[in-house]
Design a protein around this nucleic acid. Structure first.
Lengths: 151, 151
DNA sequence: CTGGTTGCAAACGATTTGCACCCGC
DNA sequence: GCGGGTGCAAATCGTTTGCAACCAG
């Protein structure tokens, strides 16, 4: 993806967020802009703490969490899940589509790019010496009812 | 999978757990047996609260959580990944391999069986009227180093 | 102006831990 | 009997919420 496309992406995300705010009578405040800016700069996934770090506490925890939930509602980001405790987020429109290989023993989470085909992963992981016990796929999108509602 | 195989599975799980206990100088106590029994009866996935319900509080929360962690360490179960707050667990050797389709809008988590091929899911979900935005695969197993260590 | 927004601090829910007593081995 | 196991209650962690002051439209 070249610079231009990345920029387009960012604008789409921004539009989604602003539309959401408008549709829900929410204001585009300094705090919300700040959180959005920081989030937009993040890579694949991040947690609340990452944002807080980058913001150098210019936004309070309370507001940060509130804004993150708004970003989820506006479908700019989504909650993702790992084996650990705190929430992680990823972009609904992934910057770098990728998957995960989690070691049950040392708890490492290996991230690797998407190649579009399932079989290839087995080979890749095998080549990496990763012994696969199993895998699960998490699809996300809109279910039948919600697709209809979308207008 | 027939009755006999299911029983074999259960025994394998049990052996794994007992081996783990032995190797770590842990005792096979009443509480641990009880938790193991209940967990073994669970379907695909479950949370701490599910176990507590089934046990009718014969095991304390503290012990339950301690035992669940032991079951994770012994690789009988693993922490799984959902978008919500509390931990879920699944079996390392899945009883019914399956995947998930999560609706970003209504937060429904649709569970569907594993068919071994990736392309087929797109068709299935499409037929269900589910509009896929993306997906992530979570592989789990042992990484190179840990495979070696396994002896 | 005015209603949504913020930060603070307190509340929360799930999970973890310190401790004194209990029980497998 | 000893060393780990248990329940209890208190502590912790990430996240959420009530409230009074604050600011965007």
């Amino acid at each position: 993806m070249d610079k231009k496309n990345q920029n387009d992406e960012a604008l789409i995300q921004q539009k989604k967020f602003i539309d959401y705010l408008t549709n829900n009578d929410l204001k585009l405040t300094k705090a919300r802009s700040e959180v959005f800016e920081i989030v937009a700069k993040m890579d694949n996934h991040f947690g609340a703490e990452d944002i807080l770090q980058s913001s150098k506490n210019s936004v309070s925890r309370a507001t940060l969490y509130r804004t993150l939930n708004e970003l989820v509602e506006s479908q700019v980001i989504r909650k993702t899940a790992f084996g650990d405790k705190h929430q992680h987020f990823e972009f609904v429109l992934e910057k770098k589509p990728h998957h995960h290989a989690f070691c049950l023993n040392c708890k490492t989470n290996i991230e690797f790019p998407d190649f579009g085909e399932e079989e290839i992963y087995n080979k890749i992981l095998e080549k990496m010496g990763f012994e696969i016990y199993g895998h699960e796929m998490h699809f996300y999108g809109l279910c039948k009812n919600c697709t209809k509602e979308k207008i």
